[in-house]
Each structure stands twice: as structure tokens, then as C-alpha cells.
């Protein structure tokens, strides 16, 4: 099916009738996903957003429960099941949701806060047309033209967007948009990344044997521990839990944390198993390229290139991959 680009606003209006629709936009000069305002034109092309849409399913601060203290304690869980649509999400960010699904929904415990949002979100993905110079998703095993876990996959078709439903949720979307859709459409699906990285199938296991390799002294030297890489990363999911007290009551919340911070693993009493940036960066790269693969069978790096683009110290995971593949 295809949708005329001139009908995009009309389609978004239909979707926004019973859900919060997030679209690529801009806030204070930063390209990121924003809540659609009900009228603005949306540009689905160009480079991917500078920030990933991960905060829609995994907010950077999320309230968990309220409590009241006194002679007895009351605890009241906060339950939110927002109906949300992420419209125009790219294949790399779609793969990051796949990674999050593994973490939050598997291995014995289901994370209620994530699963409630995940169940109620509709993912309408957009194939890339103009990759950035730092994009390397196809080296990480992705196809920049396709997101297999999307509800609806969209690709550029010139004057139209070509839509295909992959799930029941996706079929419902196409039904809702039926009045604006027509048969046919020729989708362009030949986008390829320009940056190629030597991510060999053997690398996860090879890295597991390189824990004490001298490469870590060299590749971690530039890091200044600012955590920008983890903030812009679509797959970084580490969080902290803390409380916000107001007298005898308060709220327990969780918020994004970063393995790059010095107090991340420091225990009461002072012992820290990862005391310097060498251990921290090593853990981050190993997690992305080896540990996660061992645990869940896929890479935790989706090749979006944001950390490469944003690191103020020019740390570059693609250069690390190439180096590690060679040694």
C-alpha cells in the first residue's frame, strides 16, 4: 500500500485520535523524537535523529511507586499504560527495542514498567534513505531498509510512502488509514552504509578471551568519563533507583544511569570492582560486543553511530572493532 506524502498530516491526525504520536522533530536545535502537535509537517527523510527514541518506552526518569511514612508505611504502585505510536523510527532504533525486549521481558522477571509501555506502543518504522557518515548498521547485521520487528514498515517511494504491515497491530493501522491509502508503490530499498566495520562473527567470542589484552590500555586512554556515549546510545539500558522525599511521603523512581560513572559499581565500604576508566570502557565495549551476545544471542550495538558522532574525546567503537578483529 502507499500513502501520498501530501497526505502524511492527514494520516498522523488519524493515528493521533487515540494515541500520543511521536515523530522526528527538533527541540532547541537537537533533532529528536517529539510529541506530534497535531498540525506540523513531518520530515521522515534525512539523517536519523540525534537522540534515539528510547525514552518513549524507557523514560529517563520514571516514577515507580509512592510511599507514605508514619506509624505504618503505605506503598502504592504507579501504573501507566499510555497508548503511544512511534512514527518514523529507523531500523537501528527498532533493533535497539529488540535488545530492550530481551533485557526487560526475559530471563525470569518481566519489568512491569517497560512491558506496560511496550504492549501499548505501535511501531511504524521508516527505512533509511540518506545514511550519516557514522552509520554502520549493516556491518552489525542490520538492513537499513528494513526493520523486521516493526508493526508497519515504511519505505520511501518518491512522492509516496510505501507501507507494509508486519503484525496484527500494523494491520489495524493500515485499516485505520485505509481511506488515504492506494494500491501499489515502488519502494526504494537500496540504501547501504558508507562506513564499513570488520564485525566478524567470531569477534564476540574472541573478545571474551581478550579481557586482559593490552588493547584496553590503548583504546580507553582518550575517555573522559562524561557518559555521553551511554546517553545517546539507543541500547544502553542501565538504570539507578532512588527516592524523592517530601516530608513524610515520597516517590520511588528510576532513572538512566551510566556504567561510565565512577560511583556506578562502587559499593558501601568503598570497594569498586571497576575503579578506573579502563575497566569501565572495557565493560561497556565488552557488553556491547561480547557479553550481551553470549547472554541473548545478538549484539548490543546496532551501528547507529551516535556515540562515534557525539563523543567529545573522539572515542570510536568502530575503530575498536576493526582493531580487535586484527589483533
Amino acid at each position: 500500500m502507499q500513502l501520498k506524502k501530501t497526505d502524511l498530516t492527514g494520516a498522523l491526525k488519524i493515528l493521533a485520535a487515540d494515541a500520543s504520536v511521536f515523530v522526528p522533530g527538533e527541540i532547541e536545535g537537537i533533532k529528536r523524537f517529539v510529541l506530534w502537535d497535531g498540525e506540523s509537517d513531518v520530515d521522515l527523510g534525512g539523517a536519523n535523529t540525534q537522540l534515539p527514541p528510547k525514552d518513549i518506552l524507557f523514560p529517563c526518569t520514571e516514577k515507580m511507586y509512592n510511599y507514605k511514612m508514619g506509624d505504618s508505611i503505605e506503598i502504592k504502585e504507579i501504573v501507566e499504560k499510555p497508548r503511544q505510536v512511534i512514527f518514523g523510527i529507523r531500523p537501528c532504533d527498532m533493533r535497539s527495542i529488540d535488545c530492550m525486549d530481551h533485557v526487560f521481558l526475559e530471563k525470569g522477571f518481566v519489568d512491569s514498567y517497560y512491558s506496560r509501555k511496550r504492549e501499548n506502543v505501535t511501531l511504524i518504522a521508516m527505512g533509511c534513505t540518506t545514511p550519516e557518515r557514522t552509520c554502520f548498521c549493516d556491518s552489525m547485521g542490520l538492513d537499513p531498509n528494513n526493520a523486521p520487528n516493526a508493526d508497519v514498515m515504511m519505505n520511501d517511494g518518491g512522492d509516496t510512502l510505501v507501507l507494509e504491515a508486519y503484525t496484527e497491530k500494523g494491520k489495524a493501522v493500515l485499516e485505520a488509514l485505509n481511506g488515504l491509502l492506494s494500491e501499489g508503490g515502488q519502494a526504494k530499498k537500496d540504501t547501504a552504509c558508507t562506513l564499513k566495520v570488520n564485525m566478524t562473527p567470531e569477534l564476540p567470542e574472541k573478545l571474551a578471551g581478550m579481557f586482559d589484552h593490552p588493547i584496553w590500555d590503548e583504546v580507553t586512554r582518550a575517555c573522559i568519563g562524561c557518559a555521553t556515549c551511554t546517553y545517546v546510545c539507543p541500547t544502553c539500558y542501565c538504570f539507578d533507583i532512588d527516592s524523592d522525599n517530601h516530608g513524610a511521603e515520597g516517590t520511588k523512581f528510576r532513572c538512566w544511569d551510566s556504567c561510565m560513572f565512577s560511583d556506578y559499581t562502587r559499593m558501601a565500604g568503598g570497594h569498586d570492582p571497576r575503579p578506573t576508566k579502563k575497566e569501565r570502557v572495557r565493560n561497556r565495549y565488552m557488553h556491547k560486543l561480547s557479553y550481551f551476545h553470549e547472554r541473548y544471542g545478538q549484539h548490543l550495538c546496532v551501528g547507529c553511530g551516535r556515540c562515534v558522532e557525539k563523543c567529545p574525546a573522539h572515542m570510536d567503537i568502530t575503530m575498536f572493532i576493526d582493531k580487535a578483529a586484527e589483533v
Binding site: F104, G108, Y237, D257, C259, Y264
Partner: peptide, 22 residues
Amino acid sequence: MRMKCGIGKCGRCNIGSKYVCL
């Protein structure tokens, strides 16, 4: 290891691919 969630999600108690809490 330092722990926050206790259910193998929050990340910090990993040693390699294992979570000490889980």
C-alpha cells in the same frame, strides 16, 4: 556487587555476561 534492581535488568552487577543478583 553493587545492585539496584535485583532482577537482572539495571546492569551494574554484571561480571562478564552473568548478573550476580540473578
